[in-house]
Amino acid sequence: MMRAWIDTLFAFSTTLRNVGRRRVTEPLPWKRLRAHPERYRAGFALTDDEHGEVACIACKACENVCPSGIIRVEGERRESPVTGKKRAYPVSFVLDMNACIFCELCVQVCPSDAIRMRTAWTIPGTSREDQVLTLERLRANAREGHLSWATPGRLRAMQDPERKNGEGGEP
């Protein structure tokens, strides 16, 4: 009986010791103590190719793979004003973040290194429409930066069964 009560006192020393510890709470929204890693996935962006045009070729791979079915892409074939070659361009690209589960599968399958996720973790809005990303907003996101490490190419190179480089995540 006495022993049990003395053992209970260890609990007090534990809590007392913790009084002196550094606090671990992040004082959001004022300050963020820890940065998200570069692979963090939140938000989306459509990047440009080397000619300054949107890299998306409207192949609908992301639309088909998206488990939640939140991506709608419509495209048309037209001549590039820069290179003069004919290729498909997205006319509209709608991504409804309200139902997104951030699984990164759209990035996984993209054949043209177009869609990427972002590390900017605050995606505020005042209405549901604010969370519906259009082609313009997706491209603006890409110009704003904060892009995740994973591009479609990097992801697939990392997963490639014939990969030579076994070291690290950066192929």
Binding site: T15, L16, N18, V19, R21, R22, R23, V24, T25, P27
Partner: peptide
């Protein structure tokens, strides 16, 4: 209690 639990 916040200090005890590493909270502010």
């Amino acid at each position: 209690s916040g200090r005890m639990q590493n909270r502010p």
